[in-house]
Design a protein around this nucleic acid. Structure first.
Lengths: 345, 345
DNA sequence: TTGAAAGCGATACCAC
DNA sequence: GTGGTATCGCTTTCAA
């Protein structure tokens, strides 16, 4: 109490030093545990630290030492899509285990929101940035290049990244799924997903999918890209729209498993049998797939590991270790039983 | 290039000022737009800002002005539980719209992880803190009280909060659900949820539930608290364990809808009809409930609004407006059709 | 309308 | 082992 100290009421290092009867420098050394002081001095200082409840001001530390902070800016499109929630969880855990903090930015799939967030977060001198996607606004690119800090672009693998990239090739992933469905005999396929102002991984995936299907004598007859979250209910009503417009589809591919599940529920409500009447393929192998009676045809992507890998690449770079800048985390097609082999005609 | 400037390569305010031929102070005034300079000067400065790609160092701003940052520390138990993902989304959007940033802390439901995170995040001089839950480690409480910044405890309504609180009374919520199920005629009820080292809202809810059921001549015959995430698969295998140990249960209450859905899938796999053979009640009214064929008996909680409300209370406090410190956001029982009225005996 | 000087809380560097 | 002093990039304060 009765603090004649500075502008705020926080305990500073010099107060600790004064109370302990040593200089700021000595107190500083003790707190950093870097040695160069006697045990007696250490005890004296630590005693006052406890008594006064001293908490260091890391702003000043960064500032004085001109070292970077332990902030890592992490941009994520949205958390309604479970995929990104998992990725974020992977990132934050790994970062935390290295003593770093996540500064979150939810960009709502727009480049302008991302650009604004980048400008702001850079002003806080983060140690690095982890960004979802490989498309960024031109001015964002300028800032990122000038920032001089490690950057990891995730999810949508960028083979010529700003700095580093980890993820998968979504074109290939879409292509593989398309080829698989065509291989099963499907020819009249629909797609339900979401879209936003900015091109993203789902767009790329769809392009690969379409290429494989059309190249295999099939057709992606109808594509529906909703301006919504890639979640259960959009899958449900999207399927309703799709099947109303194109009732003869033999199969539907979805942006992710959540949407696919929503779609299956719509089909069930209409008495459509899966895969008897219509094939259903999801994407991402989300947790819900593990409890469904029929294995959902999907594609496994190690979301959590992807997040962890991104954080690890970041930490390696920060500690000066060599890093492989582009890392493909891979995916795996899961045949499942919500599509069937039609017996090639 | 050829920067004879300081230790790092970043453009500083004085470089801008020099280039523009004015003093630091004038440049500072222009950048803050606080007036007190001529239009010509403004143009001169802004021109150099653009040319040099100047980004302010907000660390220095906070430091010099001894004002607080625009960081808000937000602690969340885990993101595998969709409930918290929604709350976080609500918080971050609202915060962002006020120009503030989320510094995330995933605490894994442990007080020690929370304590460590609090210590770290406080050292970065955040403007405020939003914490999930009302239980904190003793030393965390000390730090929080000394921090002198606004704190909002969310989710589990704290009627005597550290500073502010928004959420619901989980005891009441559990009680209402218990009374409802007993009212339907269920007497031999099971529970599947998760538990962790720290008491939390789910624990409180369960206590209220048990009280209502036992007070109504029923019994919560078997309670299962898994050391896992409150998600689909734990709901599935938890139900298996529960029904193996207590096959005669007439109803199961779950920690949330995701677990309830997992449980329903297990029941279906065993040929059990819901609600014919067994009643199922979830909690939280999660998005998946909207696409299921039978309305899941659940309890609606406005998760997103809860997050937004927390952010709003924080912003009001920071701008000095009066704030009602304890805000009950309410819940609503959804009868659904996964339980039935047994016809009171 | 503008600028010079002091200072925020810590660390780096150099003396003792 | 210990302490003095300059310094980080910016704002505050006061003077011109």
């Amino acid at each position: 109490m009765a603090d004649k100290s500075s502008r705020n009421n926080k305990v500073s290092l010099s107060q600790v030093a004064n109370a302990a009867g040593v200089s700021k420098m000595t107190a500083s050394r003790v707190l950093r545990g870097e040695g160069g002081y006697s045990e007696k001095t250490r005890d004296l200082v630590m005693q006052q630290v406890d008594r006064l409840g001293y908490l260091p001001n890391r702003l000043a530390t960064v500032f004085a030492g001109d070292k970077s902070s332990t902030f890592i800016g992490v941009s994520i499109p949205d958390l309604g899509n479970e995929v990104f929630a998992q990725v974020l969880e992977g990132i934050d855990h790994k970062l935390g285990s290295f003593g770093h903090q996540t500064v979150l930015g939810l960009t709502q799939h727009t480049e302008t929101a991302e650009e604004d967030w980048i400008r702001t977060v850079l002003s806080w001198q983060p140690a690095g940035l982890i960004l979802t996607g490989r498309f960024h606004a031109p001015r964002a690119m300028d800032m990122l290049r000038n920032a001089g800090i490690p950057i990891v672009e995730i999810w949508d693998l960028n083979s010529s990244p700003l700095d580093m990239s980890v993820g998968i090739n979504h074109f290939d992933a879409g292509f593989d799924m398309g080829r698989y469905l065509v291989g099963c005999g499907y020819r009249n396929i629909g797609y339900v997903g979401t879209s936003h102002d900015t091109a993203n991984a789902a767009t790329t995936r769809l392009a690969g999918f379409v290429k494989a299907v059309t190249g295999g004598d099939g057709a992606v007859t109808k594509q529906l890209c909703l301006h919504d979250t890639a979640a259960y209910y959009p899958g449900y009503y999207g399927t309703e729209q799709l099947l109303t417009a194109a009732p003869t589809l033999d199969c539907i591919f979805y942006q992710n498993d959540a949407m696919a599940f929503g779609g299956m529920q719509y089909c069930a409500s209409k008495g459509l049998n899966v895969p008897g009447d219509i094939g259903i393929a999801g994407w991402g192998d989300l947790p819900i797939a593990a409890v469904l009676p029929k294995r959902l045809t999907s594609m496994h992507v190690p979301h959590l590991r992807l997040g962890q890998a991104a954080a690890e690449m970041m930490m390696s770079r920060l500690s000066g270790e060599p890093v492989q800048p582009v890392r493909d985390i891979g995916f795996q097609l899961i045949p499942g039983s919500t599509v069937k082999n039609l017996g090639l005609s």
